[in-house]
Computed example of a mutant assay.
Amino acid sequence: MSKRVVVITGAGRGIGLATAKRFALSGDLLSLNFHSSDDELAEVAKIAKDNGGDAIILQADLSVHEEAINFIKKTEEYYGRIDVLINNAGILQSKDAHTIEWHEWQRMFDTNVGGTWSCISTTLPGMIERKSGRIINVSSELGLIGFPTYASYCASKGAIIALTKALAKEYAPIGILVNSVAPGPIETDMLIKDTIEYNDETREQIPLKRFGQPDEIASVIEFLAGPGGTFMVGQIISPNGGTAI
């Protein structure tokens, strides 16, 4: 097979869905994970096939280690390998730090960090054997700068950034390139539900005076996975409209 095998977690909505559509148009061989929403993924699969590619759609709760492992193994069984792993699945919570319950903190880390690590650790052996691969972790601008009422989210995304840097240094010498995209406020379903962040006041604080769009992040992910990303190692690229400069 000459086409890339691309895994996208959290592909059912937002940034993940926009990313899936971009890779479908490129005719790649896609493995699309979703947790609860897959309404548009059948159309993405059709786009992939119409452009000479393919797509499988697999449900998994990546906060559960065994489900994440099975998702990756099913992909490898179907396509034989994974060339690009895009860890996008995640959750958001806004809450005063002193009121965060332990189970809420644990759920945040199980999903955002645990799911990412489970997919990476299961994918790495195949990439190591082939001495090639791209891993792109979707973190967040808030993992870089911190923000009130988002302590657990900031901590989890900061962990992904640190993990990205560590893996990049460890595996770049054998041809596996690990990078991260850290978006600012992007107009997704997840953000729209967050009334603390999604409002006119927040919009006015962004130098561009608007929220970002999922496809603007997908284009950065596509760049890192393609020919333009061949010298990118351990980079944290933050498309944020100027909110963190």
Rank of each mutant, 00 (worst) to 15 (best):
K3C: 02
D194V: 03
D215T: 13
S37P: 03
L30C: 02
L92V: 13
I174T: 09
T230L: 09
G158T: 12
S36Y: 02
H98L: 12
L124A: 10
E66K: 08
P173C: 04
I245L: 15
T123W: 04
N112A: 00
D200Q: 14
G133M: 07
I128M: 10
R130L: 07
L30N: 01
A151S: 13
K193N: 06
G52R: 13
I15G: 11
Q93C: 06
V220I: 15
I221Y: 10
F34H: 14
T195S: 05
G228P: 01
N33G: 05
L208Q: 15
D54L: 00
L208H: 12
T188C: 06
A168Y: 00
S132Y: 07
N51I: 09
L32Q: 05
L17G: 05
I15F: 13
G228K: 03
E222S: 14
Y79C: 04
K193A: 04
E43M: 09
G14D: 11
R4S: 13
E66M: 02
F211H: 04
R210M: 03
A24Y: 05
A89V: 06
N240H: 15
A60F: 06
Y153P: 06
I160R: 04
K95A: 03
A151I: 03
D200T: 08
A18C: 10
R13K: 07
H98F: 12
D194H: 04
I91V: 00
S180W: 03
Y198E: 03
I206H: 08
A60E: 04
D28M: 07
A225G: 03
D110I: 08
N240L: 13
I237N: 01
I100R: 05
I47N: 01
E187N: 10
K131I: 08
A182R: 10
E104F: 13
S132Q: 05
G133L: 05
E204T: 10
S94R: 11
A20K: 00
V84W: 04
A155I: 02
I82Y: 09
G27V: 11
N112I: 00
Q205D: 09
V44Y: 03
G241M: 02
L30K: 02
P207F: 11
T149I: 14
A155D: 07
V7Q: 01
I245N: 12
I192L: 09
A18T: 10
D110W: 11
S2G: 06
I86Q: 01
K157D: 10
Y153D: 02
G12D: 01
A24C: 07
I245M: 15
Q235S: 01
I221L: 14
L144H: 13
S2Y: 08
N240V: 12
I128T: 06
A182G: 11
N88W: 09
D215Q: 14
F211G: 02
E129N: 13
T75M: 06
A218W: 11
I47D: 00
G10F: 05
L17E: 09
A55Y: 02
G158W: 12
E216D: 10
L142R: 15
Y198Q: 03
I91T: 01
I161N: 11
G234F: 00
A225M: 03
T123I: 01
A244V: 13
N179G: 04
V220M: 15
T164V: 01
G53Y: 08
R4M: 09
E187T: 08
T123M: 04
A18M: 11
I186L: 11
S139W: 02
D200R: 08
E141A: 14
D50G: 06
F34I: 04
A89G: 08
S26M: 15
I91D: 01
R13H: 08
